[in-house]
Design a protein around this nucleic acid. Structure first.
Lengths: 130, 130
DNA sequence: CTGTATCCTGTATGATACTG
DNA sequence: CAGTATCATACAGGATACAG
């Protein structure tokens, strides 16, 4: 029970898989896509409309990444025209709950951030004036 | 009470401050720095050691950003040699709690991600073989 | 509709060297 | 110790055109 040999896999370790996991979800598009799918399963076009500012490229790219890591399920109904539905996997669902807290925080506290930024920049400006 | 005029500020809106807030914290370095400071106030050097792989440049840059937005407080004791301590503000503390959930998720579920990825890539490879 | 393939530019970030 | 300045580069991500 030496504290010495404690492997201690943590996000703070540069070469830990946990860090990789963190980087995967530390992306605004990933967070928004998971958030959207958390509300309900959706198709490509619907997400394009739901998530303001995302491009088709980033949507596809991020979805593939999430699918690859088992967070999102891609259901291709193989019809013509194509009907592809994306939904969260159970694992993705658990992540989405942690993420939802973030979204809520952002929506609740951005006024405080804006205020702090303005104050900071004002002080900055004043000190520059001498 | 028309549903029509509902402003509905949401992270899904491209030009909403909430989105800006989200982008601010959707950065691996910001998440890690806040996580480190959540454990205890720390100095530059300590964070450099604590957070594996971060460069002095990114550390300073991200800290300034967080400070500017009122999430981190910078205490310069004005001594020689310099003693600069960083700590979370109350606002930063609330964010850190939401973020801590993410860190925990990453550390708990990265094995599942790794497994899914391996499986996905294997299937990928197989389909490419024909 | 749901993508994929290219091209192209800005930005993010690391390395390195220097300063108070 | 705590930064700042500069340079070089890789990559993110947009625009556009094409395809099944």
């Amino acid at each position: 029970m030496e504290a010495e040999k404690k492997p201690k896999p943590s996000v703070f370790d540069a070469d830990c898989s946990a860090r990789d996991a963190l980087e995967l979800i530390a992306s605004k598009w990933a967070i928004l896509i998971l958030g959207a799918l958390g509300e309900q399963p959706m198709r490509n076009g619907a997400m394009l409309r739901k998530i303001g500012g995302i491009s088709q490229k980033m949507l596809t790219q991020t979805l593939r990444q999430l699918e690859c890591n088992g967070l999102v399920l891609r259901e291709d109904h193989g019809t013509v025209p194509p009907q592809v539905v994306y939904r969260l996997t159970p694992l993705g669902g658990t992540l989405n709950e942690a993420l939802a807290g973030l979204d809520r925080w952002a929506e609740a506290n951005f006024p405080a951030l804006d205020a702090a930024r303005e104050k900071y920049l004002a002080a900055q400006c004043e000190s520059t004036r001498r």
